[in-house]
Design a protein around this nucleic acid. Structure first.
Lengths: 184, 184
DNA sequence: CCCATATAGTTAGATTATCTAATTACATAC
DNA sequence: GTATGTAATTAGATAATCTAACTATATGGG
């Protein structure tokens, strides 16, 4: 997940950056006739940007030895703490992954004492999962950096651009959450 | 990478969707004073959207037994074909990953006959990597779906929204590519 | 001309994040 | 009270990355 690692040695000949032009040319030749190519271009940049955003956030979090996806889970636990019964199943449902994948995440987090798993008395099949005091402390340490990274992603936009951008983002994200059937 | 897998059985009690409100409340308590919280909110949604976009694209590509990142590499090879000497090193440099990671990708692609690796005569240490006819045929098959998926990401936006969104996206992506030191 | 060092690529072995299938334990309904 | 459903875990796989070590080739200075 680490972009731009230190060079193994010094550098070599590079490939020139192509930019978007050749992608668009290829699109003209290979897109179905009913595809809106202007929209596809936009979607392509969005895909690239999303990729870069994840890389940057994980890079900024790496000094805390946590990834964006694990931070996401800790946040989930923190925000539901004392509200609802959180179980591996409900986590899996929310994150759109398998229960067994959640088990792996929980084992990892529990090893670091950031969460607590305890049997749920009212139904012996279930496990109650919650964030631990140590986990909450970790959040206190990580979140200032996390929010600052989030802000840095869009800080070069002016107030007006941010306003328009926000409306578009919210709209797109709602739509895609519906398509995927999972969301926050 | 697969979101929303078929349920293992039928469903269980779900966690309520929180929306953004509790995240913003938490941000108020935990952001550094110099962080622009409006921007951070925007960045957070962008991060979520990026995550969802990658999931959706990989989902749409899964029937072709290829992931977005491998398709990206095939596209890279296709667009540079006959132009520049493409080697594992130059690919690694471009993708911002290690040479050894590139070797793994190339082995996987070569096994399927989608690329050709051959020794480079002018420098015996190098390997010339190029897309094979079979690889090009695969692209022909996959790309219509890929472009259509890209388009579907933003198709609900009206013409005007798309116009503004595009300018913002291009700006943000340029900036983040500079920060990461890699880009297309 | 040879050797030291740099570079290209691969291999070995690890980690993270996912999956499916099988297993264990508990709950419930007929 | 047995069959079936559900919750969680385990076992084993794959993908995408990493670092470290290794092999082979290239090159520049004595």
């Amino acid at each position: 997940m680490q972009r731009k690692p230190a060079k193994e040695y010094t550098t070599e000949q590079q490939l020139p950056r192509l930019g978007t032009a050749p992608y668009l040319k290829l699109m003209e030749r290979t897109a179905a006739s009913e595809t809106n190519q202007y929209a596809a271009h936009l979607g392509l940049i969005m895909l690239w940007l999303g990729d870069n955003v994840l890389d940057l956030v994980d890079h900024d979090l790496s000094s805390f030895d946590i990834t964006e996806s694990k931070l996401d889970l800790l946040l989930l636990l923190s925000l539901h703490d004392g509200q609802e019964l959180v179980t591996p199943s409900s986590i899996a449902d929310r994150l759109g992954i398998r229960r067994s994948s959640v088990t792996s995440l929980l084992i990892w987090l529990e090893k670091r004492n950031w969460i607590i798993r305890e049997p749920y008395a009212k139904d012996g099949r279930m496990t109650h999962v919650r964030i631990s005091p140590e986990g909450s402390m970790l959040l206190q340490q990580v979140l200032p950096t996390f929010w600052s990274t989030c802000a840095s992603l869009v800080e070069e936009l002016n107030k007006e651009e941010q306003e328009v951008f926000r409306n578009v983002l919210v709209k797109l994200n709602k739509n895609i959450e519906n398509r995927l059937g999972a969301g926050r």
